[in-house]
């Protein structure tokens, strides 16, 4: 059992939770994630490690379906059944020169930890965080603190640059030398934004988020196509060279369970607690 140490709502649908998980917190690096199983009947969902402090780890997530909505009900002092991590290969951090770290929407959760490690490695770090509107912007303070320069974008112009992160990135690439770029956000945002760096031949990493089960390389659910080859995002990634990624196949696979996800959500809203189906030796 893993104790929730703090839980807060950051914006309309975005939540932050700190959980005690020493084996994860002590060894976590930028770019890695963990897998949570909220309770005994729960599914395993991957979430990016957004920060660590001592034996605690922070994740920031958007409530989009059954499991994340259930997680959003957890308060300080509650427990989560299982947490495993840190999973995945850490970000390839080294001294590149000037790097840009871009977060879109809830993807911003991953950026302070990457920016911090990049800074510690000696890079000049430029941050770009973007959201639909100013209420959905998160972690602005943390990014402000760790980045040498920070740009903010909103789709509706309610704060910072009116437009997308790709607009700002394009401008930066035109006026100076950028040596490496990280982009974390929804698949479509990563696809569109990473296209911008192709003509400039700038090394660009994206953090892929396919559907996972074990997160240890045992099932193949998370397979993605990178450079024409099949990779398991949970162990070979989740970060890959953006210019090699088949985003369309990723997005198609993310939609595999759309019907079931709807059903799970409806079931969740109509039943306050689980009924026993007697399928595991009467355990539940």
């Amino acid at each position: 059992m893993y104790q929730v140490e703090d839980a807060t709502q950051l914006s309309e649908n975005v939540y932050q939770i700190w959980v005690n998980a020493p084996q994860v917190a002590r060894h976590a690096r930028a770019g890695q994630f963990l897998i949570i199983r909220v309770d005994e009947t729960g599914e395993r969902i991957p979430l990016t490690i957004s920060a660590t402090k001592g034996d605690s780890v922070r994740v920031i997530y958007m409530a989009v379906g059954k499991t994340t909505e259930l997680l959003a009900t957890k308060k300080k002092g509650d427990v989560l059944a299982d947490i495993v991590g840190p999973l995945g290969t850490p970000s390839e951090i080294k001294n590149y020169g000037t790097v840009v770290v871009i977060g879109g929407g809830v993807g911003i959760a991953s950026t302070p930890i990457i920016a911090r490690e990049a800074k510690e490695a000696g890079n000049h770090v430029i941050g770009i965080i973007g959201a639909r509107n100013k209420d959905l912007l998160i972690l602005e303070d943390e990014m402000e603190e760790v980045c040498d320069e920070l740009f903010i974008t909103t789709d509706d112009g309610s704060k910072g640059v009116h437009g997308f992160a790709s607009t700002v990135l394009e401008g930066l690439l035109k006026e100076r030398t950028i040596d490496c770029v990280w982009i974390v956000g929804p698949a479509i945002m990563m696809k569109v934004t990473s296209r911008v760096t192709i003509p400039y031949k700038v090394k660009t990493f994206v953090s892929l988020n396919p559907i996972m089960v074990d997160g240890t390389g045992m099932c193949g659910s998370c397979r993605v196509t990178v450079g024409g080859e099949t990779k398991f995002a949970c162990v070979d990634g989740p970060e890959f060279d953006a210019h090699q990624v088949d985003f369309d196949s990723l997005m198609q696979r993310q939609r595999m369970y759309t019907d079931e996800e709807k059903e799970a959500r409806e079931h969740f809203h109509h039943h306050d607690h689980h009924g026993g189906c007697g399928c595991c030796g009467g355990k539940h």
Partner: peptide, 8 residues
């Protein structure tokens, strides 16, 4: 046992 259990 979906949807009693969450994994589809």
């Amino acid at each position: 046992c979906f949807p009693e259990f969450d994994t589809p």
